[in-house]
């Protein structure tokens, strides 16, 4: 059963998805779809880095979800892309980080999280996302810059302000 081999990676996939998507249910849906796809496509996996392979599947699922959301909710796209802050979050620092993450472009958010949270090398990220290493580096630096500005209190849009 190939599933046994995937199980040890579920916690990491969930952590990454939580940071990427923002809310728990959306993140777990992403993980769920990723696992199902991984099991279906397991015969395509070539011995090597299983972790990078799983993250590449998650990336494809994530991109597809963004696309279908874009077509299904054309009008609400801005609200949709900026996921709501987690209602369970505690402390303003946590909210700020989540909110800041939500405000950077998804493709930059992926690179920032794979490097800074999942501890991947640029080569791993390049494989997982299917982009050249140069693109990994530029997305990382742009993403970090945006994240820093967002956390340093660049004024939030009115609709995003958290009322406490």
């Amino acid at each position: 059963m190939d599933f046994e081999l995937i199980v040890p990676y579920i916690p990491n996939l969930r952590r990454y998805a939580r940071a990427l998507v923002g809310d728990r249910d959306g993140a777990d849906d992403l993980v769920q779809d990723t696992l199902e796809r991984a099991v279906r496509k397991f015969h395509l996996w070539r011995p090597g880095d299983l972790r990078a392979w799983l993250f590449s599947i998650m990336h494809n699922v994530f991109v597809n979800q963004l696309k279908s959301r874009k077509t299904a909710l054309h009008v609400e796209i801005d609200e949709e892309m900026i996921a709501a802050p987690m209602p369970t979050a505690t402390g303003s620092d946590v909210l700020d980080l989540q909110r800041a993450l939500d405000r950077i472009a998804p493709e930059q958010r992926e690179v920032v999280l794979l490097v800074a949270l999942e501890d991947m090398t640029y080569a791993d990220v390049s494989r997982a996302l299917g982009i050249p290493i140069g693109t990994v580096m530029s997305r990382l630096s742009r993403g970090r810059e945006k994240l820093r500005r967002a956390m340093d209190g660049e004024p939030a849009q009115a609709g995003l302000r958290v009322v406490q």
Partner: peptide
């Protein structure tokens, strides 16, 4: 940045894995 991300998201690693992850779909 790494420290802050880990501080916020590492708790997810030890959350119990929801049963639906295994059982929701026919697969």
């Amino acid at each position: 940045l790494k420290a802050r991300l880990h501080g916020q998201f590492d708790p997810v690693l030890t959350e119990p894995i929801p049963a639906r992850m295994y059982l929701r779909h026919p697969a």
